[in-house]
Amino acid sequence: MGEEETVRLIQKYRHDLMNRLQIVSGYLSMGSADKAKYHLDNTLQFYEEERKLMRLNADTFIIWVLQFQDVYPSFTLTYHVDLLESAETSINEQKLLLTCEKLLAVLSEAAEEFHVYDLFLYIEERESDWIIRMNIKDIAVENASAIEQRYGISVTIEKEQTSFEWSIAKDERGE
């Protein structure tokens, strides 16, 4: 990542934080303490999730997440990271990133133009491996069995939601 791209990412990050704080400030100035508290709690929860994301020690993946909206404008990303209490955590970020990018290519191909889809990414650390789940509503991918075979992941399609699940063994983390 070059200097200009790094500065642009920091500016975007700062802009997002300022927007969140201005919403809280606006509600406080209107005397709506309950709404201000609600938005402040959401902001704190967002940055707590980000803190857990940073603990993955997967810099390239973290940058991918931070740049997600610019790269994939048809999708909004919400993520949740569930870590064990161990002090040091690490994941095979190449495997995680490559699988996410491949799935986004499949989803982008299936997406309708001018429609924004909510994408949820869940990363769970377990004793011997990591479980990664990606859920998206309103897209039912075709050829789920081909995707399963090609990428080694489980695909579940229920009603109007597609779920992907795969694991990354801890001994694959490349430490």
Rank of each mutant, 00 (worst) to 15 (best):
I23T: 08
V24T: 13
V24C: 14
S25Y: 11
G26L: 07
G26N: 13
G26W: 05
G26A: 05
G26R: 09
G26P: 00
Y27I: 00
Y27R: 08
L28I: 03
L28T: 03
L28D: 02
S29L: 12
S29A: 11
S29K: 14
M30L: 13
G31E: 00
G31S: 01
G31P: 03
S32D: 11
S32V: 03
A33T: 12
A33V: 14
A33Y: 11
K35I: 04
A36I: 04
A36G: 05
A36S: 06
A36Y: 09
Y38E: 11
H39G: 04
L40D: 02
D41T: 10
N42Q: 14
T43Q: 00
L44D: 04
L44G: 09
Q45T: 11
F46M: 05
F46V: 00
F46L: 12
F46W: 14
Y47F: 15
E48Y: 14
E48I: 08
E49Y: 06
E49Q: 15
E49V: 00
E49W: 06
E50M: 07
R51W: 04
R51K: 15
R51M: 13
M54R: 01
M54Q: 05
R55A: 15
R55F: 04
R55G: 06
R55N: 12
L56E: 07
L56R: 10
N57C: 00
A58M: 01
A58Y: 09
D59I: 00
T60K: 15
T60L: 13
F61T: 01
F61K: 00
I62E: 15
I62M: 10
W64L: 14
W64V: 01
W64N: 00
W64Q: 03
V65T: 07
V65K: 07
L66R: 12
Q67L: 06
F68M: 06
F68S: 10
D70C: 04
D70L: 14
D70V: 07
Y72M: 08
S74C: 05
S74F: 04
S74T: 04
S74L: 12
F75Q: 05
F75A: 10
T76A: 13
T76L: 15
T76W: 08
L77V: 05
T78H: 09
T78R: 11
Y79E: 01
Y79G: 01
H80T: 12
H80G: 08
H80E: 11
V81T: 08
D82V: 09
D82Q: 03
D82A: 10
L83S: 08
L84A: 06
L84R: 12
E85M: 06
E85H: 07
E85R: 09
A87M: 10
A87D: 09
E88A: 09
E88D: 10
T89V: 15
T89N: 15
T89F: 05
I91S: 00
N92P: 03
N92R: 02
E93V: 10
Q94L: 09
L96H: 02
L96V: 01
